[in-house]
């Protein structure tokens, strides 16, 4: 599946919800199912301190593909991380560096990626892109 197809699949998944609370119910379930980052990897250099919630993110580069694990102390943040990882995990660094994550505004979650939201998600996306760019150097 291409990165565009993965984003479209998420947009389609969310299209069935016309109530905000149902949408968040789904995000919370995704958060609960997210494979957690290995406890030993929850180190300060992998921590993104948001004003509200904290996010840990670890990246690996294997056989030309990037792999990510992440965690947060807030379950909604975790759910959104799960969506980001679903789109970006297993992609090439080139794809990750250049991709536009248009599915986020399309499903109405852009507020979570606003610079003022301070939940660490915007910094997390930057961190993922920087990890991809590091590999490309």
């Amino acid at each position: 599946m291409t990165i565009e197809e993965k984003q479209q699949e998420i947009i389609d998944d969310f299209a069935i919800y016309d109530d905000w609370m149902d949408k968040y119910e789904y995000i919370i379930e995704l958060g609960k199912d997210l494979p957690l980052i290995d406890e030993s990897k929850k180190t300060n250099d992998r921590l993104i301190e948001g004003c509200q919630s904290r996010v840990w993110v670890a990246s690996e580069f294997n056989n030309g593909k990037m792999h990510f694990t992440a965690d947060s102390d807030a379950i909604i943040t975790k759910g959104i991380i799960a969506l980001l990882i679903r789109v970006l995990d297993g992609e090439s660094p080139e794809n990750i560096a250049k991709t536009d994550l248009y599915f986020i505004p399309a499903i109405g979650l852009q507020e979570h990626l606003s610079p003022t939201r301070a939940n660490g998600l915007l910094s997390m996306v930057k961190r993922l892109k920087i990890a991809a760019l590091e590999v490309l150097k």
Binding site: M21, Y24, Q52, S53, I75, I76, T77
Partner: peptide, 9 residues
């Protein structure tokens, strides 16, 4: 439960 989750809902 994290306060952020409650505030968001």
């Amino acid at each position: 439960i994290h306060p952020f989750d409650i505030g968001t809902l």
